[in-house]
Design a protein around this nucleic acid. Structure first.
Length: 254
DNA sequence: ATGGCCTCGGTTCGAGGA
């Protein structure tokens, strides 16, 4: 079983790429972020025609998340019940006995902004809610765009990024508190090449120069981590025409 | 280099992303 996450930066623009990537790869569950579509505009028919069921929650212009699945999707929950939020950033569902949580964690903009404080509050509440969810669902997976590079190894130039949003101590501490619930970073369960990233700025030839960050993650509960046999970042779609600035991360469960 | 890019909404620029 393959679980994946991909921030597509507008599903309206990227739908052909999503369908192409699913045609190229045997993905069972795909979590999408930044769909940027209201629910009435969501391309349900195209996704179903590709052999996937889908659950989604969106809004105009910003945010928006979705879960695509080859197996039936049940018990869909939108957002974090403990955190009042107009922004559509979380959707959860049960698929083949696994509780899948798809999250688009706030960016935070800059450390001196209100958006950064919102990000930290949002992460604190996410942790509290997931603590409950984990107890209810031992087979738990949290996939998404975390907007956090957990370690300097996840940053192309740690000195340049030191103290910057996505890399601050407070954000990394929030990530560690998710880990401390008993979740494992699937990518770090395995030996990896250095300088593996999931996002590259559109500017400055960043992708060609591999000036990126690893900010898209798959966290697995202990039970699922024991079943995980691989986790890779697929750079291929980042090389396509008109790419998202993020590329998919894929975990394989046996 | 106080930047460069992309998307959206809605107009021909500003906000937001990361």
């Amino acid at each position: 079983m393959k679980l994946a996450t991909w921030n597509v930066n507008s599903l309206k623009v990227r739908l052909p790429q999503v369908l192409q990537w699913l045609a190229d790869n045997p993905i069972d569950v795909l979590c999408l972020q930044e769909t940027k579509l209201t629910d009435d505009k969501f391309p349900v028919a195209d996704i179903e025609a590709a052999g996937y069921q889908v659950a989604f929650t969106g809004q105009k212009t910003y945010n928006g998340v979705a879960i695509l699945s080859r197996s039936p999707i049940t018990d869909v929950v939108k957002n974090n019940p403990l955190f009042e939020d107009e922004q559509q950033r979380i959707i959860s569902a049960t698929i083949d006995g696994i509780r899948v949580v798809c999250a688009y964690i706030p960016n935070g903009q800059t450390v001196d902004s209100d958006k950064y404080q919102y990000k930290l509050r949002w992460l604190d509440s996410l942790r509290n809610w997931l603590e409950q969810e984990y107890k209810a669902h031992p087979k738990l997976a949290l996939l998404g765009d975390y907007n956090i590079a957990p370690e300097d190894a996840d940053v192309h130039d740690p000195a340049l990024w030191e103290g910057q949003v996505l890399c601050t101590d407070a954000e990394r501490a929030a990530f560690d508190r998710l880990i401390n619930l008993g979740l494992k970073d699937a990518f770090r369960l395995f030996p990896q090449q250095p300088k593996c990233f999931s996002w590259w700025d559109y500017r400055q030839l960043a992708f060609r120069l591999n000036k990126g960050l690893r900010i898209d993650h798959i966290l697995l509960s202990t039970e699922l981590a024991q079943r995980c046999s691989a986790c890779i970042i697929d750079r291929a779609p980042r090389k396509w025409e008109q790419p998202s600035d993020h590329t998919p991360v894929v975990a394989t469960l046996d």
